[in-house]
């Protein structure tokens, strides 16, 4: 299916797509939080989309607009991609787990939880995966303070355009 066909198909089949956008040959579909599991299950089971490979699940910190969780899926058989996205509020971000739909997303969700502090309700084992157990805070949030930078600013130039020739 082409990216536009996937978007149309999702809107039609689940009625969940809030909006969609095509960039770099891939479609992104935004769905409401409460349809998250339903859409993922549909993508897995529907014979037309046949998404059999969840490539990754991660989040984006949009600052005031909260967080956006992104699930990228690929169909090995049909060779098409989809990005399913959902927006979460900044305080107490919470989303139902997909580890019941795809077992492999278990670790992706653990990682997203420890790095962004997004709580995946119903997750069977939400403990730290990559960070030391004692680590405090959610380091990929934009308001996370890097203590080294607090102590001393990066002394060099930040952008190539700042270089004077």
């Amino acid at each position: 299916m082409t990216p536009d066909e996937i978007a149309a198909h999702l809107t039609e089949a689940t009625g969940a797509a809030e909006r969609s956008d095509v960039a770099h040959g891939e479609v992104s579909v935004w769905v409401p939080n409460d349809k998250w599991v339903e859409v993922a299950t549909h993508l897995r089971d529907c014979g037309r989309c046949h998404f059999d490979l969840p490539t990754f699940l991660t989040a984006v910190d949009l600052e005031e607009q909260g967080f956006e969780v992104v699930l990228h899926m690929y169909s090995v058989r049909r060779q098409h991609h989809v990005n399913v996205k959902t927006q979460l509020a900044r305080d107490e971000p919470r989303l139902p787990t997909l580890s019941g739909v795809w077992n492999g997303l278990n670790w992706c969700e653990r990682e997203t939880w420890e790095l962004f502090g997004i709580d995946f309700t119903g997750h069977p084992n939400q403990v730290k995966l990559l960070l030391p157990v004692e680590f405090e805070g959610f380091p990929l949030r934009k308001d996370f303070l890097l203590m080294t930078r607090e102590a001393k600013e990066w002394p060099g130039l930040k952008e190539p355009a700042e270089v004077e020739h």
């Binding site: 890097l146 080294t148 930078r149």
Partner: peptide, 9 residues
């Protein structure tokens, strides 16, 4: 990784 949150300096 001088400013990293996870690297031992």
């Amino acid at each position: 990784f001088w400013d990293s949150y996870s690297v031992t300096k």
